[in-house]
Write a protein that binds this DNA or RNA. Structure first.
Lengths: 138, 138
DNA sequence: TTCATATTTCAACAGTAATTGAAATATTGA
DNA sequence: TCAATATTTCAATTACTGTTGAAATATGAA
């Protein structure tokens, strides 16, 4: 997942209302849920809901399909999976991110334990690289 | 992790510059990195960097400590872990979210294969709570 | 066709976030 | 103390986001 794409998804979810909408869609499962039902469930004005759904759709987190006079929205699960993977791979310290208390999992550390699918990297602080010039922006 | 807290963290990371800053902090590891080094690394104006670091700090994703005349920032790993857990538990369809093809990680599936450092948990959608009336907002 | 339901679009407005340059503050070293 | 470096704060401006109410569009039912 590209940085920009990740930022877009994170930004879309970084709003309480949209996060709530997305959670409802996740709960609804692959069958999705009609816009009106979502609106009722969250007590949102239909136009406000539409506004946020557009955002989630643009971010690739939701899709819609028409069904009679209803528009059914559903969560795009691979997008969320991709986002979680992105965060795990790029934004976690190393070994144990995303694992938290292995409580139940007791990932019996057979030999090369802590493989962690996660960060193999670790460029470390170092740096103070004198590079420059390219004021990146969106 | 509460919804509001998650939304705040997601929102903080939902900006390309801040996402880049956070990634640099993650790479820097627990020792952190001086603000100036981050600024040079990403070619950001110092005041712009300060602005975004404040945001990340407010979201609980970064902390700072003074060291001589430098201010060292570092990523708050548990916050990211918590966020990934939140997404895995609340925003993933079910079973296989966050696992995806273990491709890269070559986590040699010794017995309890597919441990994948990632999602051990899995509360799944469930929940619901038929509540209503409360036009929530930020 | 006409009506009712479902959803989106539009426009105005309010509010918040981001960018910039300049100035302020703090710490170290001469 | 003075100068240099490091970082933050401030203020002005611009850009973007979210909210609201009203209107438009679309589908199905009477």
């Amino acid at each position: 997942m590209k940085n920009m794409q990740a930022a877009r998804a994170l930004s879309a979810l970084g709003h309480e209302t949209r996060l709530a909408i997305f959670r409802v869609l996740v709960q609804a499962g692959p069958d999705g849920m009609a816009a009106g039902d979502i609106a009722r469930r969250l007590d949102l004005a239909p136009n406000a809901l539409s506004f946020h759904l557009k955002d989630l759709t643009y971010a690739g987190l939701a899709v819609s399909r028409q069904s009679g006079r209803f528009v059914i929205y559903s969560a795009v699960f691979p997008a969320m999976t991709g986002l979680v993977d992105y965060l795990t791979e790029n934004c976690c310290g190393g070994a144990d991110c995303a694992v938290t208390p292995p409580t139940r999992g007791k990932l019996r550390s057979t030999g090369s334990q802590t493989v962690s699918a996660t960060s193999p990297r670790r460029k470390v602080a170092g740096s103070s690289s004198r590079n420059s010039k390219n004021r990146s922006k969106k």
